[in-house]
């Protein structure tokens, strides 16, 4: 559940996180969350997949602890054909995903910030096959402004 401060049950009860319930597709930003694994050499890896008849990416939000290179295993467990168009510095990365297929994608992403990716076929994007990659962290120290630490928004600011 990625809608902050909204009870998970409410999202489910309203049918926002499934196909052909409240909406025709699954609402963007609903679904699961997972963290990338950092290998011993510092590179990152994760698996993203499309489960059968879900028409959505699992996880819906993949969290990287910092910018850099990540190797994704991309799995289509669905009985329909989809694709994957991912952000990466240099060019977007494209993978064609036949039914029950598995591939790889290597991405380079800056942080901090978050990126959307999708299955760019038909209306896969609208039905729910649009998901996020979140990159945590700060910019390098040399890129920060020469000024005292400044206050950032707090949870209380949003309440």
């Amino acid at each position: 559940m990625t809608m902050s401060d909204v009870p998970t049950d409410l999202v489910r009860d309203l049918g926002l996180d499934q196909q052909n319930a409240a909406t025709i597709g699954q609402v963007l930003g609903t679904g699961s969350i997972a963290e990338a694994t950092v290998r011993d050499d510092g590179t990152m890896e994760a698996t993203i997949r499309i489960r059968e008849d879900s028409m959505s990416w699992d996880p819906a939000v993949l969290v990287m602890p910092r910018g850099g290179e990540i190797e994704l295993t991309v799995i289509n467990d669905d009985k329909n054909t989809h694709a994957c168009l991912l952000p990466s510095n240099g060019d977007q990365k494209f993978l064609w995903l036949l039914n029950h297929s598995k591939g790889k994608a290597t991405l380079t992403l800056d942080g901090p910030g978050y990126y959307w990716y999708s299955s760019p076929g038909g209306n896969d994007e609208g039905r729910g096959l649009t998901a996020a990659i979140v990159v945590q962290g700060e910019v390098p120290p040399e890129a920060r402004l020469d000024r005292p630490e400044q206050p950032r928004p707090t949870k209380e600011d949003n309440s």
């Binding site: 991309v74 029950h100 598995k102």
Partner: peptide, 17 residues
Amino acid sequence: TLEYVDAGEAINHGALS
């Protein structure tokens, strides 16, 4: 258990142009 079809390695989007 069915083996996955090998989808290979993602390519540059620009390669499809």
